[in-house]
Simulated scan of single mutants.
Amino acid sequence: MTRPDYPALLRADTDRLLHVADGHFDRPVPTCPGWTVERLVGHVGRVHRRAAAWLTTGGGAAEIERPPGSGSLVDWVRRGLDELLAAQAAVDPAQTVETWDGPRHSAFWVRRMAVETALHRVDGELAAGAPTPIDTALAVDGVDELFEVSIPHRGTGRLHRGGETIHLHATDPDLGEGAGEWLIVLGADAVTVEHAHAKGDVAVRGSASDLLLLLWNRVDSAGLGVFGDRTILERWRSAVTV
């Protein structure tokens, strides 16, 4: 499977979010309790600017302007996206960049923002209508990123870990052998994950998009194939609230 085109996907998902938000700024966002669509869109504009600041200054202490009112919010978000993509384009691909988790690969921020923006685009769609799938390559990469970046940083809350295993299997065609399968081991000392075709205590089958949305608590397991001990999956979803 080829690597996701992060800048193109980031722009496409931002454009889609702004499109679905048009005329619906006052609607509540069911997957972000207490937020309206206006606040969701403003948040996306702020995180894009925050990522651009990390890339240009090497730190996250820069003060980020607050979003304007809904009348000029769309243009403000577009300018923030342009700032982020320009900052990313100026980075030497061979160098590392500073992050809240120490030096990381040069694509850290554009990857992080592509995943987050895709998830928030789905949030906006859930508020204004029906969601559309996340790009398959980005969804697979997003599952990897969750276990490489977010879980080590955030932890797993109060999840009981006694060696149970969860197998995820993306059913999208043409992913390549092992690319869309993950074996997650809930070890007492750490959560480990590998791309593997294996049997877990619980197995979940679905599109890569649906698996990513499940792990990020945007959908439940109702539309997915779940086999084995479902309580392990529900414990995970209750404790790991990313």
Rank of each mutant, 00 (worst) to 15 (best):
D141N: 08
A222T: 15
D82N: 01
V185I: 08
L215P: 00
T241F: 00
H19S: 15
L215T: 05
L81F: 14
G178K: 05
P67D: 13
H105G: 10
T36G: 07
L224K: 06
Q88F: 01
G60A: 08
H167S: 11
G45Y: 01
V29F: 02
D229N: 15
G228N: 11
L9A: 11
H153V: 07
L183E: 15
H105A: 13
E65C: 10
A127Y: 14
I134F: 00
R66P: 01
R78Q: 07
L168P: 02
T14Y: 04
A198R: 15
A239R: 10
L186A: 06
G228T: 09
T14P: 03
R218C: 09
V29S: 12
A170T: 14
R104F: 04
A222P: 05
I232N: 13
D135E: 10
T31E: 06
L175T: 09
P7C: 14
Q95W: 12
A208D: 09
F147E: 03
A114I: 00
L211G: 07
D229F: 05
Q95A: 10
G187Q: 14
T56E: 12
R49Q: 15
G69W: 12
A114H: 08
M1C: 14
E83K: 02
G178P: 11
F108I: 03
P173A: 11
L214I: 07
W236V: 14
T171G: 04
D82S: 00
G42C: 12
V242R: 11
V185C: 03
I184L: 06
A61E: 15
R46A: 14
R16T: 11
A89D: 15
S207N: 07
W54A: 04
G142W: 09
D92L: 04
T31M: 01
A137D: 07
R66Q: 15
K199W: 10
G142E: 07
P4Y: 00
L40A: 07
E83L: 02
T36H: 10
H169D: 15
L18W: 08
V115G: 03
T14Q: 12
R230C: 05
M113D: 05
P30C: 13
S207C: 03
N217F: 05
R11C: 04
T14S: 06
H43I: 10
Q95S: 07
A51L: 06
A52V: 08
D141C: 01
A222V: 04
H160S: 12
A179C: 11
E83I: 04
A89E: 10
W100D: 09
V226G: 05
M1K: 08
L138F: 00
R46F: 09
L17C: 12
E98Y: 01
I184F: 01
G23L: 00
M113C: 13
L126A: 12
V204R: 00
T56C: 06
A86S: 09
W216K: 06
H48A: 09
A170N: 08
V115F: 10
A222H: 07
T156F: 13
V37N: 13
A196W: 01
R16H: 13
L84Q: 13
D144K: 05
D201N: 14
Q95N: 08
G23D: 13
G180A: 09
D15C: 00
L138R: 07
I64Q: 11
E65I: 03
P131E: 13
I64N: 11
V110M: 03
R39V: 08
R205G: 15
G23W: 03
V185K: 14
W216R: 13
E234Y: 02
G102K: 14
I134P: 02
S238G: 12
W100C: 09
T2D: 08
G129P: 15
V37R: 14
G178F: 02
